[in-house]
Design a protein around this nucleic acid. Structure first.
Lengths: 255, 255
DNA sequence: ATGTCTTTGTGAACGCGTGCACAAAGATGG
DNA sequence: CCATCTTTGTGCACGCGTTCACAAAGACAT
């Protein structure tokens, strides 16, 4: 309606499927663990178990990167670490800015996993003048007036938004205008960005709601099971579309 | 290899596809916004735009819940809010515990979106004795010794893990043993849980790495484009499988 | 009451991701 | 050098999710 699109239609990057890209960091983490324990080689079966995926899936994923394994032996851990790191672009340094230094922003600034692999917190930015100059995770918070200059001076292309939702879009617009082309959004809002800008969303509330759904389903199944056992008769309406699995009193009545 | 599985094979809950469940919170948020602005009805087109999805997808999603729309008019906002809330299990109160009150745990405890929709922080738990008794987000932190009692006393079925990765699995095991059946894991580790327990993972580092991949790809394409323009000749090898998009010097050499 | 117009609900086609199962490849031992 | 054994790499089939396109359904005006 307004400006750009939000979810680019899965651009199948250079033949590497998006689903595979999403798993590469998982493999990399497992491999790093093996590397630290000086394990020289690993089979697809072992690595898959460590990463929590199917071994066939893992082999197919690696096949998109090329043939880096040795049949009858497995994969060379160090070599694979390097290959995946390079594929993910982690052999270079990515300066990132975090905008919105509340509880979450501060937590991210302190998060060790950030700096560990190719990412460097180039700046912390907040709109509150009282925050400016304060040290968070050893970095001085800067006022958002200087956002554009900070972005261009540091060559930042990745921005993290941890602001309240009400200002997230406008922060996003400024980041994009200043040259940021990848955004990690923690604000519970749908961001509109022009084509060519990637947005990934992390939404705590949504994750919990999905868990609640499954939790309710489990409770409902259990209840139905107990009920069926008590009545010694099958339920039989497991697929009706009217009521939920439980017959509790609604908390809100629709008009 | 050790105990249970990690990724249950997409259990197609009660006919509602997993992908649809993941979008329901999105619709709910958009609808809540409309509700607060007292908008009575909304078309699939408008709501889809607000939620950032395709309108056909939205209609199909809603069709799994039943026929709640009116042809020629659209959907009743209040009614839909209620139906989705009920479907997600948000009409009841879910007590959750947060284990690991570091920066991230504290940020989550303060996160408003938690309490807003059916979720209530029942307890904050930390292994550090120095943290015990401290107030975070108005709630006293309790020592992890009492974890099992806290879980059962409050009837907690959802646990959030924000501990260091080294202890995440053992915290997870204790949560599950105490009766928790849904876990939201922020620790960068693969958790093993028995069947019947749901785990969702939020991994900041992985999200950033995925962004870095696309960022690198964009930079590579741009470079290739510039190169091509400079040479005034087409590239032609856009799908070769050997090298990466850039021919830069490797930072690490494999054995 | 009837026709027109809007918007839903869904059948059908398509594409992506997953997992099986096996042939090819290489290591290893005799 | 040959046989055997392990493990990779992949062809293939299947199922889920997405999207198109349209018929059915209802509102609304006349």
């Amino acid at each position: 309606m307004a400006s750009g699109r939000t979810h680019r239609p899965a651009t199948r990057s250079r033949g590497i499927p998006e689903a595979t890209v999403a798993r590469l960091p998982l493999y990399l983490r497992a491999l790093t663990g093996l590397s630290e324990r000086s394990v020289p080689t690993v089979s697809s079966e072992e690595l898959a178990a460590a990463a929590g995926v199917n071994s066939a899936k893992l082999r197919k994923d690696f096949s998109y990167l090329g043939s880096y394994g040795t049949r009858g032996v497995g994969y060379d851990v160090e070599y694979l670490v390097y290959q995946i790191s390079r594929e993910l672009g982690l052999t270079q340094d990515w300066p990132v800015v975090i905008v919105g230094i509340g509880n979450l922003g501060a937590a991210l600034a302190n998060y060790g996993g950030f700096a560990s692999r190719g990412f460097r917190v180039a700046a912390l930015i907040d709109a509150d003048p009282a925050m400016a100059g304060k040290q968070v995770a050893g970095i001085a918070v800067q006022h958002s007036d200087g956002l554009e200059k900070i972005i261009s001076d540091n060559g930042v292309s990745i921005g993290v938004i941890t602001t309240p939702p009400s200002v997230a879009q406008q922060v996003c617009d400024r980041l994009v205008a200043a040259g940021v082309t990848s955004i990690l959004n923690f604000a519970p809002t749908v961001l509109s960005v022009p084509d060519g800008v990637d947005v990934r969303k992390v939404d705590l509330s949504i994750e919990l709601q999905i868990l609640a759904f499954h939790e309710q389903r489990k409770a409902g199944e259990e209840a139905a099971l107990n009920e069926a056992a008590a009545l010694a008769a099958p339920v039989g309406r497991a697929d009706s579309t009217d009521q939920g699995p439980d017959g509790d009193v609604p908390a809100v009545m629709p008009a």
